[in-house]
Design a protein around this nucleic acid. Structure first.
Lengths: 341, 341
DNA sequence: ACTGTGTGGGACATTTTGAGACCTGTATAG
DNA sequence: CTATACAGGTCTCAAAATGTCCCACACAGT
């Protein structure tokens, strides 16, 4: 069975927010006691009145106690702080980590789900769910959602659910052509599945991902492809994964030359056909029909999804110079990234 | 470690209410889908507007889905219903049990904590905490709280915390004199401890619990004792335990005759010096200075605390003819009592 | 002995939230 | 085609949450 807390996160996330805020009060009190409302409120960054509300509640619960010298924890209060410590690390600890990552990586928003997707497959689904929520948040009146491939994106599609609000237009387009990969991880497959689950329309990119110059140009002339590409370029929401450079280079059946460059120029990350080194510089770009670098900056919202300790380096590299995006990742990757800071 | 839910209950007392109400919605939906707000709200006994609030929340969480034909669960929703099933059985199960017990025993309120205090000592503390909360609820402007002895009441004292609200007067008095028992289970010891933890005043009854006629009358004349007794008789809140008749008869060093009567007349329960048979009839009353039967009916609130499978029979007997009281017990006792119905 | 600073707690205006009531357009079954 | 049941929008009012200010008190340093 899943852990109760994970279930609660879905059923009563609002309640958990309250819980962690109250816990934070108790915890601060644990260290700062005795302390007054005013000092404590500024320390916690909440207004005095709000803190006061919580504090009177907590004292009614017999967890803290008021005195003229300030507030302090009762025995019960101390017990709660101690007992909830590990639990809370899962909740508010993650939130702290999110904030740290936002700063360190320079992205506007980070969402971390607990666990390590390298170890447990279910964690990937959690990321998928978080991603769906993020997509929902980014929805506007007109929505063109471009999606890439990969097992993580497959999880997003898996967790997708209808998100028709009001009279929104929902169009999903594949951002990439077909790789020689397993069909369930193809951008096209994922795009279709996602659109169906979301009850939206979709357009697929029926082209191979890698092309010779010649076929590239001839295909670009193809009206059916051109039409889909127009949508990709005008995408309002872009959802993509981030891969490890070497793995991806091999999977793409890149030539010897590319593999060498990956090695010699220390490429570590790959995303939608671009290879990045540790500084975030683009080392190599696969000749591809589909999402281009510039498209990222035209989009209303860019959501990158990638997790697992093994992808920490890749995530970090990509974020260095990537567009301002939302990053959905997991605890394993987050911890690994923050190790260096 | 204590169970997560018990900790959460202290930080957010109505976490269970919220959670079970949302769960109930999901569960009903699981069976009735697709169904509309109106039908569902009448089925669940909530107003349409409230249900609507929850339902929009749940659909934002991606657990349910709106359609023109009605609402239905998404895959995630179904998963939650399934996963939370066992957890919820424990929670709403207890609440159901409370209601059943209230009916069966004819008392106005029953609180059941999970577990069996015969098996785990911590369960007694949970009862203690529940009792403290009940006391708090019963507080008025003037409070005289009479307490008896016993290990369960000791647990109540253990869990007591300051309950000074506004300008309330808090006076604790022992309802019983001293038994030849261990000091930590004496009414006096418990009374003092409770009062200190609650930050109230206290008066103790410095008399032996069992008396000859002669000393009884002479002690009753004693001004210091008379004064305390006045308080006992005017108690607004009475907190007492319930004991097994035989155990208590032995512990009280009752004479041969009493022991025989307990046997022949099938006494099963004891509370504050009174012995009851299965029908709730008083079989025998110890000649005692302290709380009297009549006092119970003058009190604003009577709280009986007793748990453990072994005390099921005693609890049941006492409640038959006892005053309208609040009963704090545990799952072990509750299950045993309900077996017969 | 006094003053300044921090404390909890009371009081009140104001804003925000929550919920009741009613309405609309739409999909679906009879 | 129509009756019905549906989701979802909107208006309104009360209640709860919050912002604002002030007071009496305790305590430490002067």
């Amino acid at each position: 069975m899943e852990h109760l807390l994970d279930l609660q996160k879905r059923l009563i996330p609002d309640v958990l927010d309250i819980m962690s805020s109250r816990y934070r009060i108790l915890q601060s009190l644990h260290f700062l006691q005795p302390i007054g409302r005013r000092s404590l409120s500024s320390h916690l960054g909440m207004t005095e009145r709000v803190l006061r509300g919580e504090v009177t509640f907590l004292s009614q619960q017999g967890l803290i106690q008021m005195a003229s010298s300030g507030m302090y924890l009762t025995e019960n209060g101390e017990a709660i702080v101690k007992a909830l410590g590990t639990v809370m690390k899962n909740i508010s600890g993650l939130r702290n980590m999110e904030k740290q990552l936002e700063e360190v990586l320079g992205v506007s928003k980070v969402v971390i789900v607990s666990g390590d997707s390298d170890q447990y497959a279910t964690v990937k689904n959690e990321m998928g769910l978080a991603c769906v929520k993020e997509i929902e948040r980014a929805l506007g009146a007109i929505n063109i959602i471009a999606v890439t491939g990969g097992s993580t994106l497959a999880a997003v599609a898996e967790m997708m659910h209808p998100l028709r609000k009001a009279h929104q237009d929902l169009l999903f387009v594949s951002a990439r052509g077909g790789l020689g990969e397993r069909v369930e991880n193809q951008a096209n497959t994922i795009c279709a599945k996602m659109a169906e689950k979301a009850e939206g329309r979709y357009h697929l990119l029926h082209v191979p991902d890698q092309l010779s110059d010649e076929s590239y140009h001839s295909l670009m002339e193809e009206p059916s492809i051109h039409r889909v590409l127009q949508h990709v370029h005008r995408a309002t929401i872009i959802v993509h994964g981030i891969g490890d450079a070497k793995t991806m280079a091999i999977r793409r059946h890149s030539g010897e030359e590319i593999l060498k460059r990956v090695d010699t120029e220390h490429a570590v990350a790959e995303a939608f056909g671009y290879f990045f080194d540790q500084t975030g510089r683009v080392i190599h770009k696969v000749q591809t029909i589909g999402l281009q670098w510039e498209d990222l900056f035209g989009a209303h919202s860019v959501i990158a999804v990638a997790g697992g300790k093994s992808k920490a380096e890749a995530i970090q590299a990509y974020c260095k110079k990537g567009p301002d995006s939302v990053l959905i990742t997991d605890e394993g990757a987050a911890q690994e990234i923050l190790k260096n800071f």
